[in-house]
Structure formats: C-alpha cells, structure tokens
Amino acid sequence: MSEPEPDADFRERLLREVPDGDRDLVIEASGKQLDALGRKYDVYRTGVPLEGFDGFEDGGAKDEDD
C-alpha cells in the first residue's frame, strides 16, 4: 500500500467536488473529519484502505464453474 495522501492534497481534490455550502467545512476539516466529508461526495483519499473493507470478497457467491 502506498503512503496516505496528505490532507492538503486530498482537500484540494475534494474542494473541486463539494458545493459552496460545504466548502468552509472542507477547508477547516482534517484527518478523519476530512475523510468523512470525502465519503459524503464519493471522493476517497488515495493510499488508505477503507475501514471495514476486506478486499474483493463476493459475499459467498459461487463461481459458475462450481
């Protein structure tokens, strides 16, 4: 896994996606608060695994060949 994207870089990307009403929140946020705002707009920090995400598990679906 690569190094987590710094707050400043993530904030810059996120500011391109948020409406004017949330811009001040994004500017003042950091760390997990910034990540939470990003999730709200489907913008995710690079280099950081999502909490609770355990890979590409398909929930027990069987292959067609089984």
Rank of each mutant, 00 (worst) to 15 (best):
S2R: 14
S2F: 02
E3Q: 15
E3I: 12
P4E: 10
P4L: 05
E5M: 13
E5G: 12
D7F: 10
D7Q: 01
D7V: 05
D7E: 08
D7H: 01
A8S: 14
A8N: 13
A8F: 12
A8Y: 09
D9P: 00
F10I: 06
F10L: 09
F10P: 11
R11L: 06
E12N: 06
E12I: 00
R13T: 07
R13W: 02
R13H: 01
L14G: 09
L14A: 08
L14V: 08
L14D: 07
L15E: 06
R16N: 10
E17V: 00
E17C: 08
E17Q: 12
E17P: 00
E17I: 06
V18W: 05
V18P: 03
V18D: 00
D20S: 14
D20L: 12
D20C: 00
D20R: 13
G21A: 14
G21C: 06
D22A: 12
D22C: 07
D22M: 07
D22G: 08
D22T: 01
D22L: 11
R23S: 06
D24G: 03
D24M: 06
L25A: 13
L25I: 06
V26D: 04
V26G: 04
V26S: 05
V26C: 07
I27Q: 15
I27M: 15
I27R: 15
E28F: 02
E28A: 15
E28K: 13
E28D: 15
A29F: 00
S30G: 10
S30R: 08
G31V: 10
G31H: 08
G31Q: 09
G31L: 06
K32I: 04
K32M: 08
K32R: 10
Q33L: 10
L34F: 02
L34I: 05
L34E: 11
D35I: 06
D35A: 04
A36K: 04
A36I: 03
L37E: 02
L37F: 02
L37G: 04
L37V: 08
L37R: 02
G38R: 01
G38P: 05
G38H: 00
R39H: 14
R39A: 15
R39S: 11
K40W: 04
Y41A: 05
D42P: 02
D42H: 12
D42F: 11
V43W: 07
V43N: 03
Y44Q: 05
Y44V: 02
Y44F: 14
Y44I: 01
Y44C: 00
Y44W: 15
T46K: 14
T46C: 04
T46N: 09
T46S: 14
G47C: 05
G47Q: 01
G47A: 02
V48I: 15
V48Q: 13
V48Y: 03
P49N: 10
L50E: 12
L50C: 03
L50Y: 11
L50W: 03
L50N: 02
L50I: 13
E51L: 14
E51R: 15
G52H: 00
G52C: 08
G52P: 09
G52V: 09
G52Y: 03
F53H: 13
F53V: 05
F53I: 02
F53T: 06
F53Q: 08
D54P: 00
G55D: 04
G55Y: 02
F56N: 14
F56G: 13
E57F: 04
E57W: 07
E57A: 11
E57N: 13
E57R: 09
D58A: 06
D58G: 09
G59E: 10
G59P: 13
G60I: 00
A61G: 07
A61H: 01
A61M: 04
